[in-house]
């Protein structure tokens, strides 16, 4: 990325003074800002992150190679059992499906919010935020009552004669995904709405005025402008989903264990901290690798910075 001129607060250089020199050293303005003291504003955050994020992470990494004995034993245990690898794969599979579903559900919802009157927009915002105000455990347990074999949905379907046998909707991936999509929906809707609200709808009129059909105008003009929001919401949902623990434990079956649950079990249940650390490191590495891969296909940095 090139330096963003909007953030440059220095007085403008006198015109005509070494223009070629400035262009050949794009990093100069950044360096200059350090001297001005602006860069120091970053220091508290950097220190904070170093203390509460980088340092513990380094300890986790170190522990994965040293506890109980120095070496690669923990990682060997991890790759030698199909159980753990399957759990990791399952974690990414479920997180991916949840990300996709929240996008499909969240996109039109956020779009409707930008079209609604202020009153209805407020109502829609509250509806999407309600899950934030209830405990995760309560919400998840409510799904148990809704989706179980003897739950509200199945009893209704059975009563109406739509099905003969109750449909299995919990203790499998379906239950986990339904529960997680509900929890993650606000994280998808809010960034999408924030992006969409800042898009000038007159661009659509302009497109239509130049002869585009409404759908064409929407997909060719509006949709690409929402991509920063799409990227932000997908990232938020995907990264948060990877760490889910309560929902898969209550709504999933033995085949739907996610890695968060496994790490907790190793950490608090059997107290194999070295192995738990190795699981955490493996999760981090695979997640980072996946994001890098995605970033090569889609320019995530560009979307996130809003630098179009």
């Amino acid at each position: 990325m090139t330096a963003a001129p909007a953030v440059d607060l220095r007085p403008a250089a006198p015109r005509g003074q070494h223009p070629g020199n400035l262009a050949s050293q794009p990093s100069r303005s950044t360096r200059k800002r350090w001297f001005d003291g602006w860069g120091l504003l970053m220091l508290p955050l950097a220190l904070f992150l170093l203390l509460v994020f980088v340092a513990p992470l380094a300890l986790v990494l170190a522990r994965s190679f040293t506890d109980p004995v120095t070496g690669l034993d923990n990682y060997r245990d991890f790759v030698s059992s199909s159980l753990y690898v399957d759990v990791l794969a399952n974690t990414f599979r479920i997180s991916g499906v949840v990300t996709l579903l929240t996008l499909v559900l969240g996109f039109p919802y956020a779009y409707l919010m930008t079209l609604a009157t202020p009153f209805w927009r407020g109502v829609m915002l509250i509806v999407v935020l309600v899950p934030f105000w209830t405990s995760l455990l309560v919400r998840t347990f409510a799904w148990v009552l809704m989706l179980g074999d003897t739950g509200v949905v199945n009893q209704t379907l059975l009563g109406l004669g739509v099905v003969e046998e109750p449909i299995a909707m919990i203790r499998n991936s379906t239950g986990v995904i339904i529960g997680m999509v509900q929890v993650m929906l606000p994280y998808a809707v809010l960034p999408l709405f924030a992006t969409m609200r800042s898009i000038d709808r007159r661009l659509l009129q302009a497109g239509e005025g130049l002869g585009a059909r409404p759908m064409t105008a929407f997909w060719r003009i509006y949709a690409p402008l929402t991509l920063p929001g799409v990227a932000a919401s997908c990232l938020l949902v995907f990264i948060s989903s990877i760490g889910f623990y309560v929902t898969p434990a209550l709504l999933g079956g033995p085949k739907d264990v996610m890695i968060g649950e496994l790490i907790v079990q190793q950490l608090s249940g059997v107290l194999r901290w070295g192995f738990a650390s190795a699981l955490a490191v493996a999760l981090l590495v695979v997640t980072a690798a996946l994001l890098l891969l995605v970033a090569r296909i889609v320019n995530v940095g560009k979307f996130m910075a809003g630098d179009r």
């Binding site: 159980l83 033995p254 264990v257």
Partner: peptide, 9 residues
């Protein structure tokens, strides 16, 4: 525990 997880999965 590990055997049980494998069996159940």
């Amino acid at each position: 525990s590990k055997r049980l997880s494998e069996w159940a999965a």
